[in-house]
Nucleic acid binder design. Structure first.
Length: 187
DNA sequence: CGACTTTGACCAGCGC
DNA sequence: GCGCTGGTCAAAGTCG
C-alpha cells in the first residue's frame, strides 16, 4: 500500500490507504478503515457495474466500506446530474463521488468544514437526505449524506466538486509535523 | 454576535 | 399541462 500521496495520513484519525482500484482506470481511490474516496472521477457513465465490482472486490478483505449501490447510482446520481446540469457529455471530467460506509455516525468527519443547507425526505426511504456545502469561502463543493434505504447501518455519502483549498485537518497536521522534527525522520 | 442548523417554500426536470 | 420528486433558498431559531 502506498501512503505517500495522502496528506491526511499524518492524522491518526484518518488511517487512509491509497490504492489503484482498477488498472484500466485512471481514477485514484483512497480507502480508510471506514470509508472510501475517489480523488477524481470521470463522467457519470463511467461508474459502471464493473467498476463498482472492482471497488468492492479490492476492499473486500478487511474493509467495511462498499461502493455506492447501483440503485443509488441510477436514481440519485442521475438526478443530481440532471438538476445541476454540470455534465455536458460523458467525456467531461466530473468530480463526483459516491460511496457507502458502515457507520453509526450521521455525518463522517472528512477533515473539511461543511455547512448544512438543506434536508429532504426521500421517496421510498425512511431516512432523510442532508445537503451540505463546504463552508470555506469560494469553495463550492457539495456533499449529500443519507442512510442506505436497504440497510440503515450504512451511510451513503456523495461529493460533487473539487475543493480549491487544503483540508483544514491536513494543514493542521502538516504544521504539527513540521513542529515535531523527530516525526519527520523517515527511518 | 457570528456561525451554524432547521424547515417550509420555491423552482426545475421528468414522466405520464 | 400537471403532479411528483429532488435540490436549493432563506428566514428564523439555536448555540458557543
Amino acid at each position: 500500500m502506498d501512503y505517500s500521496e495522502n496528506p491526511n495520513i499524518a492524522n491518526p484519525n484518518y488511517p487512509q490507504i491509497s490504492v489503484n482500484i482498477n488498472p484500466s482506470s485512471s481514477s485514484k481511490f483512497v480507502i480508510s478503515d471506514d470509508y472510501l474516496m475517489v480523488d477524481e472521477f470521470l463522467g457519470q457513465d463511467s461508474w459502471s457495474e464493473s467498476s463498482e465490482k472492482a471497488i468492492s472486490t479490492d476492499i473486500a478483505s478487511g474493509f467495511s466500506a462498499t461502493a455506492a449501490t447501483s440503485s443509488y447510482k441510477n436514481n440519485n446520481m442521475q438526478s443530481w446530474k440532471r438538476k445541476n446540469g454540470v455534465m455536458k457529455n460523458k467525456e467531461e471530467v466530473c468530480h463526483r463521488v459516491a460511496f457507502r460506509t458502515k457507520t453509526e455516525l450521521e455525518v463522517m468527519d472528512d477533515g473539511f468544514k461543511w455547512r448544512k443547507y438543506g434536508k429532504k425526505a426521500v421517496k421510498d426511504s425512511p431516512n432523510p437526505r442532508n445537503y451540505y456545502k463546504c463552508s470555506s469561502g469560494g469553495c463550492s463543493v457539495k456533499k449529500r449524506v443519507e442512510r442506505d434505504r436497504e440497510d440503515s447501518s450504512y451511510v451513503i455519502t456523495a461529493y460533487e466538486g473539487v475543493h480549491n483549498h487544503e483540508s483544514p485537518c491536513a494543514v493542521y497536521y502538516n504544521q504539527m509535523s513540521l513542529m515535531l522534527p523527530s516525526h519527520n525522520a523517515s527511518t
